[in-house]
Design a protein around this nucleic acid. Sequence first.
DNA 1: ATTTAATATCGCAATATTACGATATAGATT
DNA 2: AATCTATATCGTAATATTGCGATATTAAAT
Lengths: 108, 108
Amino acid sequence: MGASKTDHFTEEQNQIAIVAKALGHPARIAIIEYLLKVNACICNDIVNELPLAQSTISQHLKELKNAGLIKGEIEGNSICYCINETTFNVLKEYFSRIIFTVTNQKCC
Amino acid sequence: MGASKTDHFTEEQNQIAIVAKALGHPARIAIIEYLLKVNACICNDIVNELPLAQSTISQHLKELKNAGLIKGEIEGNSICYCINETTFNVLKEYFSRIIFTVTNQKCC
DNA sequence: ATTTAATATCGCAATATTACGATATAGATT
DNA sequence: AATCTATATCGTAATATTGCGATATTAAAT
C-alpha cells in the first residue's frame, strides 16, 4: 500500500488534503515563512537559509507549487517564487467554517 | 531517508507541520467532517461511513489524536471522539497571519 | 564561445505511510 | 460465565516521501 483511496472522497476533501499535505513538512513551512519574510524571492537564497541540499529544496518548492501554495515566475536567470494568497485563503475559510460549526455544538 | 530533519526548524514550524500533515489525507478530512456533522461521535459509525477497514480508521483516528486535532474520551463500551477546537484555532490564526502579511506586500 | 550562476531532474538508499486481515482487549449484554 | 460490540494493536505488503549527489539545463556574464 502507501497510496490513499482518493476515489471515495469528495473533490473538496481531496483538495484540502493535498494542500495540507504539502504544508506537512517543516522545511516547506520554513520556505513559506522565508518567502513571507523576504517579500522578493529567489530559490538560491533559501539554500543558504535552510540546512538542506539545493536539490532537496527544489523538490520542496515543486511540491508547494503543485499544491498551489506558491507561484513561480521565471525572471531571467533565477525564479521568483511567491505565496499564492488564494490557496491560503481557501484553507483559512475552511478552518473558519470548522471552528464556527464546532463552537455552535454542545457535544464534548 | 524518509525522515524529516526536524532538528533544524523552529518549534512552531514543526508543530504546524505536524498538524498539517495529520490533515494531509482525505480520509482524515472526511473523519473531521463526519465528527462535525454528527456532533456526538462514535468511531464505529465512521466505519460504516467510510470505505476503509475498521483497523485503518482506528489508525487515522490515532494520528488525528496525536496531532491534537481530536480528543477521545472512553464512554463505557465505545469512545467519544470530538474535534479539538484549540488546535484548529491555532491553524486558523497561523494562516490568518500569513494572509495578513502577504496582503501587505507588494511583490508578485 | 566559455564560463558562471541558478535551478531542475535523475537515480538511489533509507525510512514513512497506507491499508488490510488477524488478533487482542475490555466493557456490555445475555 | 459466555458472548457480543467497539476499539486498538500487530504484522505485513505495497507504495510514497525525504534527502542526497551527480548531472542536466538555461540564461547571464566574461
